[in-house]
Design a protein around this nucleic acid. Structure first.
Length: 469
RNA sequence: GUCCCCAUCGUCUAGAGGCCUAGGACACCUCCCUUUCACGGAGGCGACCCGGGUUCGAAUCCCGGUGGGGACGCCA
């Protein structure tokens, strides 16, 4: 049987890091088994679903390069199918109309909570042999409930967590269609996973409690239609924020696109996410192709993982070092533009990037660090006070003299500095540091002769002149 | 409250009863490289939640506790 997995987000917000990992693992599982990965948009909550969110999810998937073989399917476009299935369930007696009003249900729930009981539907409208149902109220549009078995247990072998067993007595009759006729999540999932031939449902941990209900519905459906099969389930634990707290909109949950804005490479985010809750021995850095070959559900940790920006930074730094300069040039040009800095031909951007790409963690850092090549630096006061001392100015003046007449190459610049250093009986940094401050604005930079070579003679002399005054 | 899940260095993890004196990675510290800061290289610090049991032998299996998390919607 061909493996078919799916990622099924609800379009009520952006694609966040947890969703991205779920998608990644589903994707990898399908790739590993030469199967298909399907994208399904679960938009039955009409009030909260938005086209913007759909787009945001699509953008996130695209940025990460998580390509899908089928879809996106939209549940709202499958209404006829859901209604058809509901009708068969109604006909078969595995679903029934419930006329309890929302107010009535709310009151019931409140009372149960007050009594320290698990809130659940009381089965008022559940048909039972020999039971007399209340009179149907005329002013209430009924919802439709699934008639969940009351005895026995639901058991499944979770591919991540192992055997899970939940008693039917813990479950109540869930609503599968609202009063307005729209079907609800748990029901649509069941129909879709079945219709789409999903073999492994890989999803977040928060769905564990939905699973027995879904299995029960699938079994009820299977009794009507022999083609219906129960998929396997794999529940992924959640990703916690760096403080160990649950990620929420208020609390650290950001769109994967934010990582793009913040200067992370998609391959770095992917590699980081792959290692969060999954492992392949001691391997830390690997390509997505490698990941797809290695991926298995057996090596997924069942416990929650805490997000760690330092490690993401380290991985990102690695991928920046590996990155192709043509790509970096295009990317950094855009990032500099956002800082209102136009890249000119003069210091060649690719050369500038070569000077810096091994020293930084993010693309934003890279852009910020090289900004001084394309605009006058702002001189850091602390650095200036420390290094631009009065006694060094004659030395710099003397250096300027010799710089004026040399061929503008790093080695010759280095030689010129060395000569001045010798002449004044100083140490190299004594001259290099003030130069750094005058040319870059700060006290840290790559080797100063290389910086000067790239900056160009005119610009170097102009900056020194301006800083000397 | 009820049900479900989880538990190895600060963090991500390796670990399928003896290969464990618990390995790797990030972070941190030290040293080396050095023209400052990084990069890189070499070292170091640092963990099996607790208590019982099973066994010749437990990080690994079982039970209990504790702690953390999740679910309990006409949300998904």
């Amino acid at each position: 049987m061909t493996v078919r997995t799916r990622f099924a987000p609800s379009p009520t917000g952006f694609l966040h890091i947890g969703g991205a990992r779920t998608a990644l693992f589903s994707w990898a599982f399908a790739k590993k088994h030469a199967g298909q990965f399907i994208l399904r948009i679960e938009d039955t909550d009409v009030a909260r679903s938005t086209p913007e969110a759909v787009q945001a999810i699509l953008d996130g998937m695209h940025w990460l390069g998580l390509d899908y073989d089928e879809g996106p399917f939209y549940q709202m476009q499958r209404m006829d199918r859901y209604k058809q299935v509901i009708q068969t369930m109604l006909d078969a007696g595995s679903a029934y109309y419930c006329y309890s009003s929302k107010e009535e249900l709310d009151a019931l729930r409140e009372q149960q909570m007050a009594n320290k009981q698990k809130p659940r539907y009381d089965g008022k409208w559940r048909p039972e042999a020999g039971k007399v149902l209340p009179d149907v109220p005329q002013d209430i549009q009924p919802a439709i409930r699934f008639k969940n078995p009351q005895a026995g247990v639901v058991v499944w072998d979770d591919l991540v967590k192992g055997r899970i067993e939940i008693a039917n007595a813990e479950l109540d009759d869930l609503i599968i269609a609202r009063a307005d006729g729209t079907p609800t999540y748990n029901f649509c999932v069941v129909v879709d996973d079945s219709d789409m031939g999903i073999t492994q449902v890989i999803r977040g941990d928060d769905h564990v409690n939905n699973t027995p209900r879904q299995i029960n519905m699938l079994m009820a459906l299977a009794a009507i239609d022999a083609n219906i099969k129960v998929p396997q389930y794999a529940h992924l634990s959640m990703i916690l924020g760096s403080d160990g707290q649950k990620l929420s909109k208020r609390h650290g949950a950001v769109s994967v696109m934010q990582y793009d804005d913040d200067g992370y490479l998609p391959e770095a985010v992917l590699n980081y996410l792959a290692r969060l809750g999954w492992s392949h021995g001691d391997d830390e850095i690997f390509s997505m192709q490698q990941f797809a070959e290695w991926f298995d559900l057996d090596h997924i940790t069942p416990s929650a993982a805490q997000f760690n920006t330092e490690k993401l930074n380290w991985i990102n730094a690695h991928y920046i070092k590996q990155a192709d300069n043509a790509y970096l040039v295009a990317d950094i040009t855009k990032r500099l533009a956002k800082l209102n800095i136009a890249v000119s031909d003069q210091p060649n951007l690719s050369s500038v990037i070569d000077l810096y790409k091994e020293r930084i963690n993010t693309l934003n850092e890279l852009a910020a660090n090289i900004a001084y090549f394309y605009q006058k630096p702002v001189i850091d006061e602390v650095a200036s006070e420390k290094h631009l001392t009065a006694d060094i100015k004659p030395v710099i003046a003397s250096l300027v003299e010799s710089l004026q007449s040399i061929d503008w190459q790093a080695e010759l610049i280095h030689q010129a500095i060395n000569d001045v250093v010798t002449q004044y009986q100083l140490k190299f940094p004594k001259v290099a540091m003030p130069l750094r401050v005058m040319l870059t604005g700060i006290a840290q930079s790559p080797s100063i002769d290389q910086v000067m070579a790239l900056l160009g003679k005119d610009e170097v002399l102009a900056r020194i002149k301006s800083a000397m005054n």
